[in-house]
Design a protein around this nucleic acid. Structure first.
Lengths: 169, 169
DNA sequence: ATTTTAAGTCAGCCTTGTTGACATTCCAAG
DNA sequence: CTTGGAATGTCAACAAGGCTGACTTAAAAT
C-alpha cells in the first residue's frame, strides 16, 4: 500500500514482492515456522527436565568439539552466567566434559560424552525429521532460496560464525 | 553420511540435499536468522519496557482487528494467564482497546488504539526493513522458496491459521 | 434450571535471560 | 619478577514470560 504499485517483473530484481503485506506474511511465516522448528525437541527435553538452552549448548558443542566457553558465548549470544548455569548441570549430569586447555590453562575445552552425544542425537534427529519432510515437500530449489533468505537475515557477526562453522565441517 | 550418496539431480525431487549435514545447516540457519529477525524490535521494545510477548500481541491484534481473546490464544499458543498479563498492561497503557462483543457479550473484541497502532508500526517497520533487505539480497525466487519451506515446517494447525490470515487480508 | 463457555484473576512455580560484584588462574608485557 | 588484563567461574538478586491449579463472573446454550 505504501509503496510499489509497479506491475510486472524485471528478472531477478523485482520490487513486486516487497509490499508491506508480503513482508508481513514473511514475518508471520517466520513466527509460526519457528514454533514448529522447536516443537519436537522441546517435547523430548521435557522427559529429561532440560530446556531449550540445554539443547542449544549440546548442539553447538557437538558441532564444535573442544570449543571454549568464550567461543560458545559468542555463538549463543547470552551472558556467561546464563550459559554457566546450563553448562554446569550438563557437566554434573555427565553429558558434557570440561577439560582444562592444553596451551592456555584458563580455557576449558568442552566435549560431549557418550551420554551427551546420545541426547544430542535424539534431539537433532527429531528436528531433522521435520526439516527433511519440509525440504522434501518444498523441493530443492525452494531449499536453496530458504537458506539464501535466512543468511541474508542474520546479523553480520552471526553470518560470519555461521559461515565459518559450515566450512570447518 | 547416513544416507543419499546418490549423485546427480532428477529435477525437483532430488535427495542430494538431505544429508544430515545439510539438514544441520538448515537448523543452524534457522537459529541464527531468528535472532536477527527479532533483534530490531527487541531493541525498540526496551525503550518502552515491553517484551517480545507485547510485540506479538500487538502484531496479531493489528492483523486481526476485533479478534477475541480466545482466538488470540489459539494464534499465540500460550495460556490465557500468560496472555492476560501482557494484554492487561497494553490495555492499561492505552495501546489496546477491549470491547464487549455485540452478539456474544462474553467475548471481548480487541483493537489497537492510535497509540497502539503507532507502536505496532514502529516495530513492524524495523522488522520489515530487515526483511526487505534480505529479500532484495536473496532475490524473488529465493523468497518463494523461503516461504514454501517455512510453510512446510509449521504444525498443521498453525499452517491453517497462517493461511487463513493471509486470505482475509 | 443447569451446564458450558469466555474471560479474568490470584498464587506459586520454572526456565532463562539480565546486572553487579568478586575470586582465581594464568598469560604476557613492562 | 611483578603487575595488568583476560578467561573462567561463582554468588546474589531480579525480570520476563512461560506454566499449573483454583476460583469468580457473566452470558450463552442445552
Amino acid at each position: 500500500m505504501s509503496e510499489s504499485d509497479l506491475p510486472g517483473s524485471q528478472g531477478g530484481e523485482t520490487l513486486l514482492f516487497l509490499t508491506d503485506d508480503q513482508l508481513r506474511q514473511g514475518i508471520e511465516a517466520m513466527f509460526f515456522a519457528y514454533r514448529g522448528f522447536t516443537a519436537d525437541p522441546d517435547r523430548i527435553l521435557q522427559n529429561y527436565s532440560y530446556g531449550r538452552a540445554h539443547h542449544r549448548a549440546l548442539h553447538f558443542i557437538n558441532a564444535n568439539p573442544g570449543t571454549t566457553v568464550n567461543n560458545l558465548l559468542a555463538i549463543l549470544g547470552v551472558t556467561k552466567q546464563s550459559l554457566n548455569r546450563v553448562l554446569r548441570t550438563l557437566i554434573e549430569d555427565g553429558l558434557v566434559q570440561s577439560n582444562v586447555g592444553r596451551s592456555d590453562k584458563r580455557e576449558r575445552n568442552l566435549n560431549l560424552t557418550e551420554k551427551g552425544e546420545a541426547l544430542e542425537q535424539e534431539l537433532s534427529n527429531a528436528q531433522r525429521v521435520r526439516m527433511r519432510a519440509a525440504y522434501r515437500q518444498a523441493g530443492p530449489e525452494a531449499v536453496q532460496g530458504f537458506k539464501r533468505v535466512l543468511e541474508a537475515m542474520m546479523d553480520p557477526e552471526m553470518r560470519r560464525i555461521y559461515t565459518k562453522m559450515r566450512e570447518t565441517r
